[in-house]
Computed example of a mutant assay.
Amino acid sequence: MPSSVDARPVGATSPGTYAELRDRLAGGSIKLPRRLQQVAAYALAHPDDVALGTVAKIAEDAGVQPSALIRFAQTLGFSGFTDLQAVFRERLLSQVTNYDERLMSLRATGGETSKAGMLLDGLCKSATQSIGQLHARIDIDSVERATRILAEAETIYLVAQRRSFPITSYLSYALGKLGIRNILIGSAVGTDPETISFATPRDAALAISFTPYAPATIAHTRELGDAGVPLVVITDSPFSPLASDSRIWFEVVETDFQGFRSLSASMALAMTLALGVADRRQG
């Protein structure tokens, strides 16, 4: 008879890498109770903290008991939390931590070939792969529903910060050219909360954020949701803090090249929504 402490599913094998772990959690093949979902969401949003923290500190930050971390590890096929933490530490060791190191890596892999050619080739391949994955996995019915929500809005609020901000800034330009009223959240004078306070359920919002999720984007999205504003979200994980607040959300994972990620797939989806809104408005 199996021990009552062993929470591992029968025949489960533990993920060997962080990428495998993330794919297993995001794929929906493992059904987690609420507390363990909380642990999973925290772990994917704060992988560095999980790699370096103590059980007590990680549990405190995740808002769970330390025993939940052990149950989470065993559910994934690990014998204990230490083995799970080793996967996060391996990710941290192999991760390029700053842009100078990334550029050094790029130069080192260039050999005698043209550096510009190598860069262009690598970035084009990663962009092509990102768009290919989006095209293969996207649910067109969800795109149609999101387009309808945005098209019916009096004003579309565009919410993003940091790496995601170029998407909403270009989207604001495109929507403006298409004659669609929108408000870009991201004021340099810090008046975003006041701007958001004008939103009503007759409006809609498109929020975009990727790991590590921008705190301002999370806060603004929740404010809009609390005001009854319909939310459409583009993010990179079912455990994203934005996903639970949205009416419709899309998972977009950009392939990286030497630690750099383009926004090709995210931009393609955003522009699909913008053109779809314009088409519905004209119809």
Rank of each mutant, 00 (worst) to 15 (best):
P2T: 08
R8H: 09
A12E: 05
S14K: 05
L21C: 01
L21K: 00
D23E: 12
D23K: 03
L25G: 04
S29P: 06
P33N: 14
L44W: 02
D48F: 10
D48I: 09
A51M: 01
A56M: 10
D61H: 10
Q65D: 13
S67I: 15
R71G: 05
A73R: 04
Q74E: 00
T75D: 04
S79Y: 08
F81V: 02
F81Q: 00
D83P: 02
L84K: 02
A86P: 05
V87S: 01
V87Q: 00
F88I: 01
Q95S: 14
T97R: 13
R102W: 10
G110Y: 13
E112Q: 12
T113L: 14
K115Q: 15
L120A: 13
L120I: 12
T128R: 12
Q129K: 15
Q133V: 09
H135F: 12
R148I: 10
I149G: 03
L150I: 02
A151Y: 05
A151R: 06
F165H: 10
I167C: 08
Y170C: 15
L171A: 06
S172E: 11
Y173L: 11
K177S: 08
G179N: 02
N182P: 08
I185C: 11
I185F: 11
S187I: 09
A188L: 12
A188H: 11
A207R: 06
I208K: 00
A216N: 09
I218M: 06
H220I: 06
H220Y: 09
R222Y: 11
E223I: 15
G225T: 06
I234P: 04
I248D: 07
E251I: 07
V252M: 08
T255I: 10
D256G: 07
F260T: 09
L263V: 12
S264F: 07
S266E: 06
A268I: 10
L269S: 06
L273H: 03
A274M: 02
D279M: 13
